[in-house]
Simulated scan of single mutants.
Amino acid sequence: MTSKTIKPTPPKNLTPEQRAMLNVNKVTAGDISASLRAGLTDFLARPLMSGFFGLFYAVFGILFVWCLVWLGKIWMIIPAMVGFPLIAPFAAAGLYEMSRRLQKGESFGWSEILTVMANQRKREMGWMAFVTLFIFWVWMYQVRLWLAIILQDASFSDFDGFLNTVFFTPEGWTFLAIGTCAGAVLSAVLFSVTVVAMPMLLDRDIDFVSAMLTSIRVVTENPGIMLIWAAIISVTMLVSMLPAFLGLILTLPILGHTTWHLYQRAVTSADA
């Protein structure tokens, strides 16, 4: 049986202690399936607006890779592409707001959605964005650190040279093994603190630290299901980036809307 979905409007006149009293529900595979269906429905309800966020994210990725090539940082292309999904929760903020309003039956236009970050109460979403971008920066820095330590004598004059060094030399295999482990830890940390924190900040009068702690509770109390959800996101995002990032125009909006509905199933008010 799937957990029930509640209305997103938070109770009024609650003290800070009462606001922090949230129930973390058991999430099942059925919840993921239902959330995916609801996410697809939200996408089809406003496909142009939803697709805009996917297009913006894809264009940003293309420009990011182009800048790396222009700067001669060929070695950063693969780790940048692998780490690129880490900032997806921040990029999907407008999609969460769209799903919130669709669920409540509210009308909305471009201005309400595009200004969601600026209008967010107490600007807690800005702090979450800082956390997301900081972890992405750590991701990129640790790649550079391992390159300097393990492949210090290698020269990457072109992309083919980088691929040959990484995939066909013992030093490259060591770099991949260590980098994968370090990247997995960072990815797990970011997923745990953001999986429901971003939509929660739009839905409830809560600070970003409480939102992150609740998000961690969702993961720790549903480790298997959240691992499946993380795998779905990772595989979908990475495959979507292969055709020049263009697959993200479709997949990012659907995953963003789905995340909203999964959050609704995973977290409810204590008095619900």
Results as ranks from 00 to 15, higher is better:
Ile228Cys: 05
Met98Lys: 03
Val219Ala: 07
Thr251Leu: 06
Leu40His: 08
Leu95Gln: 03
Pro85Thr: 01
Asp203Met: 04
Gly109Trp: 15
Leu163Ala: 13
Ser107Lys: 08
Met125Arg: 04
Gln142Val: 11
Thr2Met: 13
Ile216Ala: 12
Val69Gly: 08
Val69Leu: 14
Phe60Glu: 06
Thr9Val: 11
Gly39Lys: 02
Lys4Met: 05
Leu262Lys: 01
Gly51Pro: 11
Gly256Arg: 02
Thr15Cys: 15
Val116Trp: 03
Ala29Val: 11
Met198Gln: 07
Leu248Ala: 07
Phe156Cys: 08
Phe208Asp: 05
Ile206Asn: 01
Ile206Cys: 09
Gly30Asn: 14
Ala197Val: 07
Pro89Ile: 04
Trp260Leu: 06
Trp229Tyr: 08
Phe208Val: 11
Leu213Gly: 00
Phe168His: 10
Asp160Ala: 14
Gly161Val: 13
Ile233Pro: 00
Leu250His: 03
Thr259Arg: 04
Met117Thr: 00
Gln103Thr: 08
Val189Arg: 12
Thr194Cys: 10
Thr220Asn: 09
Ile178Lys: 10
Ile254Gln: 00
Asp31Trp: 12
Ala148Phe: 09
Thr169Asn: 02
Arg101Asp: 08
Arg217Gln: 15
Pro16Ala: 14
Leu250Met: 12
Trp75Ile: 05
Leu14Lys: 09
Leu255Lys: 00
Gly224Pro: 04
Met128Asp: 02
Ala188Val: 06
Trp260Gly: 01
Leu44Gly: 00
Pro8Gly: 10
Gly51Asp: 12
Trp137His: 11
Ala197Lys: 08
Glu112Ala: 07
Thr259Lys: 06
Met125Asn: 03
Ala58Thr: 01
Gly172Trp: 15
Ser50Thr: 11
Pro47Ala: 13
Ala211Thr: 02
Arg101Ile: 14
Gly39Pro: 00
Asp160Asn: 09
Gln120Glu: 09
Phe156Thr: 05
Val166Tyr: 12
Ser187Asp: 12
Glu97Arg: 03
Leu71Arg: 10
Val235Gln: 10
Leu213Ala: 07
Gln264Ala: 15
Ala184Lys: 08
Phe43Arg: 02
Asp158Thr: 12
Gly72Asn: 05
Met117Glu: 01
Gly247Thr: 04
Val131Asn: 11
Leu40Trp: 13
Ala45Leu: 14
Leu176Gln: 11
Ala118Trp: 09
Trp139Ser: 01
Leu202Thr: 03
Asn222Leu: 05
Ser269His: 08
Pro170Cys: 14
Trp66Pro: 00
Ser187Ala: 15
Tyr57Lys: 01
Phe64Trp: 13
Asp153Gly: 12
His257Trp: 08
Met140Gln: 06
Trp173Arg: 09
Asn13Met: 14
Pro170Ala: 13
Arg217Ser: 15
Ala88Asn: 06
Phe136Cys: 10
Thr132Met: 05
Leu55Phe: 15
Thr28His: 12
Pro199Lys: 06
Ile74Tyr: 13
Leu63His: 02
Gln142Ala: 10
Asn119Glu: 14
Leu246Gly: 00
Leu238Thr: 04
Trp70Thr: 07
Asn164Ile: 07
Ser99Pro: 09
Asp205Gly: 02
Leu86Ser: 01
Gly224Met: 12
Gly72Val: 10
Leu250Val: 10
Gly30Thr: 10
Thr268Cys: 06
Ile225Thr: 03
Phe162Ala: 13
Ser155Ala: 13
Val239Phe: 10
Val65Ala: 05
Met241Ser: 04
Tyr57Leu: 07
Lys104Trp: 11
Leu238Tyr: 06
Ala270Met: 13
Ala230Asp: 08
Met125Glu: 02
Trp66Leu: 14
Ile74Ala: 09
Ser187Gln: 14
